[in-house]
Simulated scan of single mutants.
Amino acid sequence: MTFILRRLLHGAWVLLAVSALVFAALYVVGNPVELLVDPQADPADTARTIAALGLDQPLWRQYLTFLGNAARGNLGTSFIHGVPALSLILERLPATLELALSALFLALLLGIPLGLWAGLRPTSLAGRLIGAASTLGFALPAFWVGLMLILVFAVQLQWLPPGGRGETREVLGLSLSVFTLDGWRHLLLPALNLALYKAALVVRLVRAGSREALAQDYVRFARAKGLTESRVVTGHVLPNTLIPVVTVLGMELGALIAFAVVTETVFGWPGMGKLLMDAINALDRPVVVAYLLFAAALFVVLNLLVELLYGWLDPRVREGRQ
């Protein structure tokens, strides 16, 4: 319990620091009134708009007002949409979750077999090519890869649409694309673009883990018992290789959700990242601050859950926290 309270307190300090930095940065970038009010508007109307948005107050007072409202669950009202910023984020959350989970599935589908092949046959031509491709996956920028995917599969081959979300279906009150064929056609390219970096990470982890597992005594013992190579790989090498993969990807899921900004912008995917870019362009300060606080809280919660899982799996870790 002491560990949980300590981590929650640490998370609260992280959220406070993020909110202060973002609030100050947005204040320096520009004045949203210049975008919200017609330059030809009457000065009295402009003054009323500034007062209604609370922008006539000094920055420190605006920030304290924001903190007081945040403590009551109110992260501010969007300057552009005129609705609570948190409701806008939660409205876009299903689309981002759908994209992130699809990308995670593709990363595992591509990364595990390729990494296993490269680990079992590291000196083969295919193993070397897979290793080089994984390095390339880390180096290529997501926006460039996204544009190339659109150019090849949407413009030249015309197999898939270049953007948008396509047809959705209501499931448990959520609009989801994965339950329609048109939705999958729109989802595939952005999910693949978001998955490539994670797939390269999975390839590296599986390749290193399988090479390490092959050198262990339990693999030698399994082979000495006369087990076939496929039984050795599937029953001994792969399960032990996947432990660090699951751990790392559990943490990377937060990054997929929070930092799908580039992919959502390139493909016009109506998720939280697209909302963030639109809010930045319009200097919609409440939406930007609310999004970054939401993303920071997501990382704090995921880190806490992973550490609690470690403590449950390994009592030595739990005892070290007391």
Results as ranks from 00 to 15, higher is better:
114 L>Q: 04
115 G>P: 02
116 L>C: 03
116 L>D: 00
117 W>S: 11
118 A>T: 05
120 L>K: 02
120 L>Y: 09
123 T>C: 02
127 G>R: 06
127 G>P: 06
128 R>A: 06
129 L>N: 04
130 I>R: 00
133 A>H: 07
134 S>L: 07
139 A>H: 06
143 F>M: 08
144 W>M: 11
144 W>G: 10
145 V>S: 06
146 G>F: 11
146 G>A: 06
148 M>F: 14
148 M>T: 13
152 V>I: 15
153 F>M: 07
156 Q>S: 14
157 L>W: 15
158 Q>R: 15
161 P>E: 05
161 P>W: 04
162 P>A: 14
163 G>R: 11
164 G>N: 08
165 R>W: 02
165 R>F: 03
166 G>A: 03
167 E>C: 03
171 V>E: 01
171 V>H: 04
173 G>R: 09
174 L>H: 14
177 S>I: 01
180 T>I: 12
183 G>V: 09
184 W>M: 11
185 R>M: 15
187 L>V: 11
192 L>T: 15
193 N>M: 13
194 L>Y: 00
196 L>D: 03
197 Y>G: 05
199 A>M: 08
199 A>D: 00
199 A>N: 03
201 L>D: 03
203 V>F: 02
205 L>Q: 01
207 R>F: 02
210 S>L: 01
215 A>Y: 06
216 Q>R: 15
218 Y>K: 07
226 G>R: 01
226 G>P: 05
227 L>H: 12
228 T>Y: 10
228 T>A: 15
230 S>T: 15
233 V>Y: 02
234 T>N: 13
235 G>D: 02
236 H>E: 05
237 V>A: 07
240 N>M: 09
245 V>M: 08
246 V>E: 01
247 T>L: 13
249 L>N: 01
252 E>C: 08
252 E>F: 05
253 L>E: 12
